[in-house]
Simulated scan of single mutants.
Amino acid sequence: MTTSRRRTPNPNSMTSKLWSPEGPNLVVQAENSSFLGSLPDAAFSLIYLDPPFNTGRVQSRQNTVMVRSSNGSRQGFAGHSYETIKGSLHSYDDAFTDYWAFLEPRLLEAWRLLAEDGTLYLHLDYREVHYAKVMLDSIFGRECFLNEIIWAYDYGARAKSRWPTKHDNILVYVKDPSKYHFDSVAVDREPYMAPGLVTAEKAARGKLPTDVWWHTIVSPTGKEKTGYPTQKPEGLLRRVVAASSKPGDWVLDFFAGSGTFGAVAAALDRRFVCIDQNPEAIGIMAKRLGEVAELVQETS
């Protein structure tokens, strides 16, 4: 592995035709590696990346809506019948012949774009996280590794020939271990698993989350659902944004997908840039973030 830290500024990154610190939130339709070069060094306090996991298969999700019908195929509450209406199918190809040639230059850009007190969260799964740890150690330095967060959930199919895989991995790196921002007071708290072992005051307040986060996925029938495959729950990203950025900070997601990061950032008074090249993702973000962000398309 030949990865090395990029210590010198990118000569093409001094100005951006679309982004400025005084400008609006942005949802950008662009190939991220080409657009990132237009952004200035050290511009973002927090970068969250949820790249394709290299599963080798097409990821898809279809919206479904239940509507009341006099002759529906399903029975519901109080004897009413309902019909299932299928909506648009969203999908993308999650297979790369050379995954690390794809990801490495984007991680180098993430290092460049982080402010000196900034933090990177890289969201992967068991297939690639160990290789990513080695690569990020090389780019950031091992002393800049802060945490590996395990997001544990309990939903979906159950394997019978091995332990069912029910977690994702989130690697957390800081630009400078002596300067990074972390606000534990701003983070939501969790119930104690054994509240009888602590004082009533502590039990009422709850405990600070550890590096294992128990949080359900986005329910296929829940209010958060957008129909986008691999959509992440807002509660998960709320912890990330609250802990590792301040109100008014600029934050970045350049594998933005359904725009959950942007939605959480806006709700917590952060300024954001969300980038994705998938027209389906841009369509979903336009509906979800159109009132709080400017939608732009990179032109060559």
Rank of each mutant, 00 (worst) to 15 (best):
E104K: 07
L136P: 00
D117C: 08
K133C: 10
A101V: 15
T119I: 02
H130C: 13
Y192N: 05
L113E: 10
E148F: 02
H123G: 04
E143Y: 08
A203Y: 01
A157M: 13
W163S: 12
Y173A: 08
R189K: 12
Y126N: 13
K133Q: 12
L122E: 01
A204W: 01
E190K: 07
S91L: 13
V174G: 01
F96T: 11
A194I: 12
I149F: 00
D94H: 03
A186G: 05
W100P: 05
Y99K: 03
M193H: 06
G196C: 00
P105S: 05
D154W: 10
L108K: 13
W213N: 02
L146S: 13
L89C: 13
A203K: 05
Y192W: 09
A110D: 08
S138G: 09
D137A: 09
A101R: 06
A203Q: 00
R162L: 05
L103I: 15
H181C: 08
Y155H: 14
E143N: 15
F102V: 09
K175C: 03
L146W: 06
L108N: 10
P220W: 02
L103W: 09
E143A: 15
Y131T: 15
A186L: 00
W214Y: 08
L208K: 06
V129I: 13
T97Q: 07
W214S: 09
L103K: 04
D176M: 03
A203P: 00
D98M: 04
G156C: 02
T210G: 15
P191N: 06
G118H: 13
A186M: 06
H123Y: 11
N147C: 04
D188W: 06
G141P: 01
A186S: 03
K160L: 07
L120Q: 07
Y92M: 03
V218K: 00
A110H: 09
V185T: 10
E190R: 07
L103E: 10
N169W: 07
N147S: 11
G141R: 01
R127A: 14
T199E: 00
G118A: 10
V172P: 00
A159G: 13
A200R: 12
F145Y: 11
I217K: 15
L136H: 03
A200K: 12
F96G: 06
W100Y: 09
Y126T: 12
I170G: 02
R162C: 05
D154G: 07
I217V: 14
D93T: 14
S178M: 11
W213E: 01
P105T: 07
S161A: 09
L208N: 04
T119Y: 04
F182N: 09
